[in-house]
Design a protein around this nucleic acid. Sequence first.
DNA 1: GTGGTCTAGACCACG
DNA 2: GTGGTCTAGACCACA
Lengths: 131, 131, 131, 131
Amino acid sequence: MLINIDLQSNEPIYEQLKNQIMIQIARKDLKPGDGLPSVRRFAADLGINLHTVNKAYQQLKQEGFILIHRQKGVVVNPEGIPSVDGEYEEKLAQSLRPLIAESACRGMTEGEFTSFCRQLFKQLTDEGDEY
Amino acid sequence: MLINIDLQSNEPIYEQLKNQIMIQIARKDLKPGDGLPSVRRFAADLGINLHTVNKAYQQLKQEGFILIHRQKGVVVNPEGIPSVDGEYEEKLAQSLRPLIAESACRGMTEGEFTSFCRQLFKQLTDEGDEY
Amino acid sequence: MLINIDLQSNEPIYEQLKNQIMIQIARKDLKPGDGLPSVRRFAADLGINLHTVNKAYQQLKQEGFILIHRQKGVVVNPEGIPSVDGEYEEKLAQSLRPLIAESACRGMTEGEFTSFCRQLFKQLTDEGDEY
Amino acid sequence: MLINIDLQSNEPIYEQLKNQIMIQIARKDLKPGDGLPSVRRFAADLGINLHTVNKAYQQLKQEGFILIHRQKGVVVNPEGIPSVDGEYEEKLAQSLRPLIAESACRGMTEGEFTSFCRQLFKQLTDEGDEY
DNA sequence: GTGGTCTAGACCACG
DNA sequence: GTGGTCTAGACCACA
């Protein structure tokens, strides 16, 4: 579990944590059924508060990425991650639109943008490399 | 200037405003040299706070999208928008990574993701159509 | 806003709060668009911590009962409450089954049980009476 | 004794166990005087902790559903289950109120709610069928 | 002033 | 030891 938290970032810590866990899942460093550290353990390892870890876990649970057992701790959803639905596509589009708009303003073409995405996609999903 | 502000959204109003202005520029509804409403006027039209419009304008100015003259008002940068540089690419990558990670988790392939981007890119830059 | 919190109860305070707000909505003491107190105000009024109120609000928001504006505070969803769907029916059945089972064990007939429900339903939705 | 324990559930295991035993009694799969497995045996069969089974048994005994003899083992109360009293009605009402309130909020009518209960009641008490 | 986030420390239910 | 809940107090972004 290589997780890097930037305490200085504007991005909330719990968001960073969520994202990094999702990245691990995307690149299959974490597979369905794999366990994650307990909130206390993780908080101690990362040097952050247990409530912050808990908030990340609760949201991941709520979105169906993980299951939280009262006793046995936390595991990646063994039934797999919920797949893309209309609701997610809309959310994704909402997030992408501003990024695309700004990139277009700055002169990026459609091809440049998509190939930029392709690169990132490969980096994230190819196993083993730097994230 | 068709601007839609969603007061219910989690996205800060000034961000929404920035984004929608950038979208207008991207689709060339706003061209270099075109004028924008004064802070007061814009705030009144949109029914939002002066400071909110001002914040959006200051950030757009800071990023080189617009110029603010004390008397002459606000115009889209007549020298064009600063083009993509390494710094922007890094910022863009930071924003895209979590989106790509979540999409990949949910089973989207690289091809699906890029074609999704392509669609959005077209919608945003094709002039005249629905946004 | 007549809310009674029992600090001694086993039922978590945030659950009590959620339930009492839902009761107010059910009996139309709170209508779509009506405002609710700010987290700080409500917490002070009830003599509980603001995080506890916040937790109740977040969950009500998440279930579509209320909207939370960053500035303007909290309102009952003006578009109305999400209606019953299959997911909710399943959740409801899960909650009812044990209650029905125990009641049946104790000799309640189907008719007695449903008429008991009918009474409660009337008490909750008829305006003005004791809850 | 078909008992299904869901280790993933938020519902405590001992609660699940209690409920399922009560369901068996309600549908007369278990009749007064019938024996139940010993704590050890039951725990082994279900793959759960001794203390968990014991907790469920203690509470069922406490409520008069079962008797626990040191040597003779555990039996469904041969004198029958204590019938409904005022205390139980109040407890039941406390549990039902939030469910009714939420259902009413979501647009369920009194008739829909009671007929939903009627269905569940039949499913639970009709012998032999799916639970 | 509002909600959003983070920290710290405490007690309890569960198994 | 685990997560669930609650409290208390702090700082920040937003408008």
